[in-house]
């Protein structure tokens, strides 16, 4: 059935030559890159993120652990899921005493799904970068920081290095060389905590994904 369907569909599509689109006027026009300096990128990113109730915290390489500690304390977290093997995760693990119980994604989800779904308060992940125009985090989950970390726990704390803040999605795809590198199993853009407007077009936050998104913006030089 499958192959017959395939052959028939392709045959029908090839029966007529469709009109060629008028020369792709506009297609090559780059409408999506801006000449924004670092301060402007940060300003726009923050404005967009805060408009959808994400929290933004500024930090640098020396004090970001303090900022994270404060966030954990303010939210009364009992535990924090993270990878002990990323640069950031190693630094957190080295000072584990300052944080709520640190949990690791030690085995495939099937082995600890119940705890992941009902027992984890928050997850900490790194990001591949950000997008200033729309206030967006770029995540390429992997074996260290799997897909459900930024999805299932009620709080997602993400660390974004300011130098990886691109102007637009198009610029990020190009500058990070997505096509050349090849896409991962799952690439994600995350722009705020989960939300819905399905009842009376009224925004409600925390539907199926995280109820809270916390972004720690880390400056390479003191802000």
């Amino acid at each position: 059935m499958n192959n017959v369907a395939r052959t028939n569909i392709l045959q029908r599509l090839r029966k007529e030559t469709p009109p060629q689109p008028s020369p792709c006027q506009g297609k090559e026009q780059d409408v999506s890159s801006f000449d924004w300096d670092r301060a402007e990128r940060i300003r726009r990113f923050t404005e967009r993120m805060e408009a959808v109730r994400a929290e933004i915290h500024h930090a640098d390489h020396r004090d970001w652990l303090d900022v994270l500690t404060e966030i954990c304390h303010a939210k009364g977290l009992n535990n924090l899921l993270l990878s002990p093997n990323t640069t950031w995760g190693q630094a957190i693990s080295a000072q584990a005493g300052r944080f709520p119980t640190l949990r690791h994604y030690e085995q495939p989800i099937d082995g600890w799904k119940e705890e992941m779904f009902y027992g984890i308060d928050a997850a900490f992940t790194s990001t591949l970068g950000g997008i200033a125009e729309t206030g967006t985090l770029i995540l390429w989950p992997d074996a260290e920081e799997p897909r459900t970390m930024s999805l299932v726990p009620p709080v997602h704390i993400a660390l974004l290095e300011v130098d990886k803040l691109h102007t637009t999605f198009a610029a990020a795809v190009q500058e990070q060389g997505w096509v050349e590198k090849g896409l991962p199993t799952n690439a994600l853009l995350v722009s705020g905590p989960s939300k819905s407007a399905d009842i009376e077009q009224t925004l409600a936050y925390g539907v199926h994904g995280p109820k809270e998104l916390v972004v720690i913006l880390v400056f390479s030089h003191p802000a």
């Binding site: 729309t134 799952n186 853009l189 722009s191």
Partner: peptide, 11 residues
């Protein structure tokens, strides 16, 4: 300007 999630699945 964008939705909360844009999910790109390749494998």
């Amino acid at each position: 300007p964008i939705t909360t999630y844009f999910n790109m699945i390749s494998s």
